[in-house]
Design a protein around this nucleic acid. Structure first.
Length: 270
DNA sequence: AAGTTCCCCTGTTAGC
DNA sequence: TGCTAACAGGGGAACT
């Protein structure tokens, strides 16, 4: 499910709901969700939720003595009720809070992961720069792309250089940049990369402002829908006319992922 | 070594 | 209608 704008929305929602709450008890129904499950519950009990942050697509919950890092992967989500009981078979972790409410983690496909750490930077050292970091410049992108033989789609999906983009927003960035997703990035000129850089920031900022996108089965934290799906220009629009040239959007596979492209507006640079 | 494919899971949907 | 294969907003392991 979520890419950076959706994770950002989840973080902001959780912030309004459970800040300063103390965790009184924890139930792990599905141990595979939790890295180093031994002691997971014990480390969390009596910890107070002091703040939230986000790094790439990771949610970071700042607790009194440690950090709880969560990745929702495809279908992870949170909801709150007042029962510590397992509401359904897709609830895998539940947190009893000190105000009689319970935070539940639900994840149909069980791809999501949780980890307790003392050092967020070390735990997340494998991911690249944030889109809104001042150090994220066209030059940074250019230097990384010059050394890579990946397609633009694979390059942006990999979280190694720039983190936060997923399948939806990569398609949107490629379209808005008018570049075919199969273009090998070391062929891109600085002028193209400046456009890509600009569109990454624009798309993510616009999507965050609208609470992310809700398509398919995904609704955001607490069942609140984002609105950015209404702004999508190519993703999920196979057979529909391109908003620029009116020719039909096609769906292809790039980097093993369903990919939407207007082959008239997005030329591959060879 | 960098780049690509496979696979983790379950539910939904497209296609016979 | 019913079965089956393909697919899904991700990413790490295994492979080439």
């Amino acid at each position: 499910m979520p890419e950076l704008p959706e994770v950002e929305t989840v973080v902001r929602t959780l912030e309004t709901l459970i800040l300063q709450r103390k965790i009184e008890d924890v139930l792990v129904h599905t141990p595979s969700i939790v890295y180093f499950n031994d002691g997971f519950k014990e480390q969390l009990i009596n910890q107070t939720i002091q703040s939230f942050s986000r790094r790439g697509k990771y949610i970071i919950i700042h607790l009194s003595d440690c950090f709880l890092i969560i990745h929702l992967r495809m279908e992870g989500r949170f909801f709150i009720n007042t029962s510590f009981e397992r509401a359904n078979k897709h609830v895998h972790v539940s947190f009893q809070l000190d105000d009689h409410r319970v935070l539940h983690y639900q994840d149909t496909r069980k791809f999501g992961r949780m980890l307790i750490t003392d050092d967020v930077n070390e735990s997340l050292s494998h991911i690249g720069i944030e889109f809104n970091d001042p150090a994220f410049t066209p030059k940074l992108l250019f230097d990384a792309m010059r050394k890579s033989k990946r397609s633009l789609k694979a390059f942006l999906l990999s979280q190694e250089v720039i983190t936060g983009l997923g399948n939806i927003y990569v398609d949107e960035v490629c379209f808005r940049s008018r570049i075919h997703p199969e273009t090998i990035v070391n062929r891109l000129k600085l002028k193209h990369i400046k456009i890509i850089h600009h569109e990454i920031k624009a798309v993510l900022n616009e999507a965050i402002a609208l609470g992310g996108s809700s398509i398919r089965t995904y609704t955001n934290a607490m069942g609140i829908d984002g609105l950015f799906q209404l702004q999508l220009q190519v993703h999920m629009r196979a057979q529909q006319p391109c908003i620029v040239c009116k020719k039909p959007i096609i769906k292809i596979i790039v980097a093993n992922r369903g990919t939407y492209v207007c082959t008239h507006c997005q030329k591959e640079l060879k």
